[in-house]
C-alpha cells in the first residue's frame, strides 16, 4: 500500500488539472495503488476565508474519501483569529495536522507568529506540513511570482520544539542540501521530507543518504504533478524492499501515529 502524504483537493488557480474534482482525484489515486492520501486544499493558497476552505476540505474528504483522504487544513498566521482556526482543525474537523503555505501567505520561517503556531500545534499533538514551494518560479504567472520558502530559520526553531512533528513538502530546492543550516534541519529526528520535487539521476538515493531512510515519505504533489513522477522515482532508485516499503508506507504511518 502507498500512503501519499502530498495531494491537493480542488482547483489550481492557474490551470485545470485531471483529478481536480474530489471524486476524480480519489478514483485516480486508488487506480494507481494509493491506499491513503493526505490532502490539503488549493483554495487555501489565495482565500482569506480560511475557515470556509477548511470546512469544504473536511466535507469533501468525508463525502468522497472516507477512510482514504486524510484532511490537512490550513492555518495562516497572518490572518486574524488564526488560533481559533487551529482549534477548529483539531477539535471540530478532527484533522491530524495542518498544512502551511508561507510563500503564498507572506511570511518567512523566521516570523515570530510561525513560532507561536508551531508551538501551539506541538502542544495539541498536531503534525505540521510546510509546503516550501508549489511551482517552479520560472513558470509562474508573471502576475504572481512566489519564490520557494527558505527553511534555514528552522535550524534554530526545531531544537526548541522537540514535540513538534514536521513534514516539509516540495523541498526540491533544499532537500538533501548540505549547507550547515539545512544540514542541521535534515538531521533532526522530528523533521520529515517528502520527495515530490526531488530530482536528478540518483536523486532519491542521495536524499535518503543525506537525511535518513526513516524520515523520507512518499509524496506526489498530485494532481499538480503527474502522480507517476513520484512512483517512477521510487522504481528507478533500485531500493532494498524494506526501504521501499518504509518509503511507501511505514514512515508515514509512524509519523501519523504520533497524531
Amino acid at each position: 500500500m502507498i500512503i501519499d502524504t502530498n495531494v491537493n483537493l480542488f482547483r489550481w488557480p492557474f490551470r485545470r488539472l485531471p483529478g481536480d474534482d474530489p471524486q476524480g482525484l480519489v478514483t485516480r489515486l486508488r487506480q494507481k495503488g494509493v491506499g491513503q492520501a493526505w490532502a490539503g486544499s488549493f483554495e487555501a493558497l489565495l482565500c482569506r476565508d480560511i475557515g470556509g476552505v477548511n470546512l469544504r476540505l473536511a466535507a469533501a474528504c468525508r463525502e468522497f474519501g472516507k477512510d482514504f483522504l486524510v484532511p490537512f487544513g490550513c492555518v495562516n498566521p497572518k490572518l486574524p483569529d488564526w488560533e481559533e482556526e487551529l482549534r477548529r482543525c483539531h477539535e471540530v474537523h478532527r484533522m491530524p495536522g495542518v498544512r502551511l503555505y508561507p510563500g503564498y501567505h507572506g511570511y518567512t520561517l523566521a516570523d515570530p507568529e510561525l513560532t507561536h503556531l508551531l508551538s501551539l500545534a506541538a502542544s495539541r499533538g498536531l503534525m505540521v506540513q510546510i509546503a516550501l514551494s508549489m511551482e517552479d518560479p520560472r513558470t509562474q504567472s508573471p502576475m504572481m511570482i512566489v519564490p520557494p520558502t527558505d527553511p534555514t530559520p528552522l535550524a534554530d526553531l526545531v531544537p526548541r520544539l522537540p514535540k513538534l512533528r514536521l513534514l516539509l513538502l516540495n523541498a526540491g530546492y533544499w532537500g538533501g542540501h548540505a549547507t550547515p543550516e539545512v544540514k542541521e534541519i535534515t538531521q533532526a529526528n522530528n523533521v520529515y521530507f517528502d520527495m515530490a520535487m526531488n530530482e536528478g539521476i540518483g536523486g532519491l538515493s542521495r536524499l535518503l543518504d543525506t537525511i535518513s531512510p526513516e524520515r523520507i515519505v512518499f509524496g506526489s504533489h498530485f494532481p499538480f504533478f503527474y502522480f507517476e513522477s513520484a512512483l517512477l522515482k521510487v522504481k528507478s532508485a533500485g531500493l532494498p524492499r524494506d526501504q521501499e516499503a518504509a518509503l511507501y508506507e511505514g514512515n508515514a504511518r509512524r509519523l501519523l501515529a504520533g497524531a
Partner: peptide, 18 residues
C-alpha cells in the same frame, strides 16, 4: 534532460498523461 533531471519525472509526463 538527465542527469540534472531524472528519467522518472520526465517519463511520467507521458506515462501519466490521459
Amino acid at each position: 534532460d538527465v542527469g540534472g533531471r531524472s528519467f522518472a519525472s520526465q517519463m511520467a509526463k507521458v506515462i501519466g498523461a490521459e
